[in-house]
Design a protein around this nucleic acid. Structure first.
Lengths: 180, 180
DNA sequence: GACCAGGGTTCATTCACCGAACTTGCTGGG
DNA sequence: CCCAGCAAGTTCGGTGAATGAACCCTGGTC
């Protein structure tokens, strides 16, 4: 976790950003939020993060205004990205692209498509089909060639991510099943 | 420091990327390398990082192929970004832009210009003047409106960054002075 | 051959992370 | 009404990493 503490001496916005999202697990949590994960246990199961750490990260991200806690009914609440959180999308993409380039020998593990026309997105966030600049909400996340099939019975989140679905949309809203 | 350990279960290139550059201080070191910092003591002084941690990070970044150690003469060597390290530029920019947007009330602390024509860069890496896609080596880093003047006598690096200079070019190669 | 700077390493302390177990609040069933 | 079950955390002991100060080694200078 880069710099949760003061880094006031540094005149750099990167340091500021890392104070918020540079801690261990934090960017993975934000990425999962883009993927549609919203509930505590789903984050925990999908990331394999210790629950205490997850609790702390969700708290600090909420305090920072990256996430909001939405009370669904009583104790069942969900975490959603705020516009400030959604603004992290380009950073997330850039880092993921770098990872794909250098650590995904069999191709990207996930690919991003424009929801309108199904064409893949370019690196600069434009649609390779229509050329439009695509907002995060109009992105469809689909499995890529580099995705290894999960062995055994995957968790809710992994299962949901095995089929294309729109970013920021909650995965399997309440219970699994949803028969077509 | 997100995930220096195994994260093999995760089918995500972001996790892979964070295993390399997600640890505390690592991205700041890479950023400084873009700014032209190359020597151990300059990194240490500019970042305020414990020397033991810096030593370890430089080692792991070198092992990962993000930096190379260039022997200048005997014990005096320098660290340079490899192409793989330079490929982190978009990610660094995206994160810095997010920090500027949300944590720089008086404007960006540094601005990026196209070396060819001096016009500022767009978010997508293009030159606002000529429209060309600008390589990191053709970027000039200049102080922005949000940069607070350093109080007291700054270190070599802070002083060098107070005037515009080209990315990846070493700061004050050997000794200060360099009279025009 | 004494001094100095660069480039680290060593070490004790503190802090954060880990994983498992425990608690609390709500829901559904008998 | 009482108990089981689940979601959402909190608590806790053990471990590993970060911190910062001090020390060391090497090469060059005077």
């Amino acid at each position: 976790m880069p710099l949760p503490h003061d880094y006031s001496g540094q005149s750099c916005s990167l340091a500021r950003a890392l104070e918020i999202v540079g801690e261990r697990w934090t960017l993975l949590i934000v990425r999962d939020a883009f993927y549609g994960v919203r509930r505590f246990d789903d984050f925990a199961a999908h990331l394999g993060i210790p629950r205490a750490v997850l609790s702390e990260r969700l708290k600090s991200l909420t305090t920072a205004g990256v996430l909001v806690r939405v009370g669904t009914d009583g104790a069942r609440h969900e975490y959603e990205l705020t516009p400030k959180g959604v603004a992290l999308w380009p950073a997330l993409r850039a880092l993921t692209d770098w990872g794909d380039d250098h650590y995904a020998p069999t191709g990207p593990r996930r690919i991003l498509l424009h929801a309108e026309d199904g064409a893949p997105l370019e690196r600069d966030g434009r649609c390779s089909g229509c050329g439009a600049r695509v907002e995060p909400a109009d992105v469809v996340i689909a499995p890529g060639p580099g995705l290894v099939p999960t062995s055994g019975s995957p968790d809710r989140v992994t299962a949901a991510l095995a089929i294309p679905h729109r970013a920021l949309e909650p995965i399997s809203p309440r219970d699994p099943g949803t028969p077509a």
